[in-house]
């Protein structure tokens, strides 16, 4: 059987790649997709540990995460649409209104 540490390693790699995507890409949609990747890495670990501990709660939690992710994507994409409508761009570096 496969040790949990393998799943942990895979999950860590995927999470790191997601984080890297958030940090290095400028396209808001791809940043968004990277966030989804990070969520997925977390989901994988949840399920792996649920299996390791023989507890279903982990799976239930993943279910909620998926639901929340769906909601988040709906709102987030709507925001991106609005931003694009105002600025004709989704380059995240152009949104620097918060500059101090």
């Amino acid at each position: 059987m496969i040790p949990v540490s393998y799943y942990f390693a895979l999950s860590a790699i995927l999470f790191s790649l997601g984080a890297l995507g958030v940090l290095i890409r400028r396209n808001a949609i791809i940043i968004f997709m990277s966030v989804e990747l990070m969520l997925n890495a977390a989901n994988l670990l949840f399920v792996a540990f649920a299996r390791a501990n023989d507890a279903l709660s982990g799976q239930v939690f993943v279910f909620f995460v998926i639901a929340v992710a769906a909601a988040e994507v709906a709102v987030g994409l709507a925001l991106i649409v609005v931003i694009f409508r105002n600025r004709q761009s989704i380059d995240i570096d152009e949104m620097s209104n918060l500059k101090g």
């Binding site: 496969i2 799943y7 895979l10 949609i29 968004f32 997709m33 989804e36 997925n40 989901n43 994988l44 399920v47 792996a48 649920a50 299996r51 799976q59 993943v62 279910f63 998926i66 639901a67 992710a69 769906a70 994507v73 709906a74 994409l77």
Partner: peptide
Amino acid sequence: FFLLLGAPFIAMAQVTVYAGAIMVLF
């Protein structure tokens, strides 16, 4: 992987919600 880990329900949800709904939206 979810299937391998004995989570068929989550696997289905993953495919339908993520791969299906969310990514289509993207």
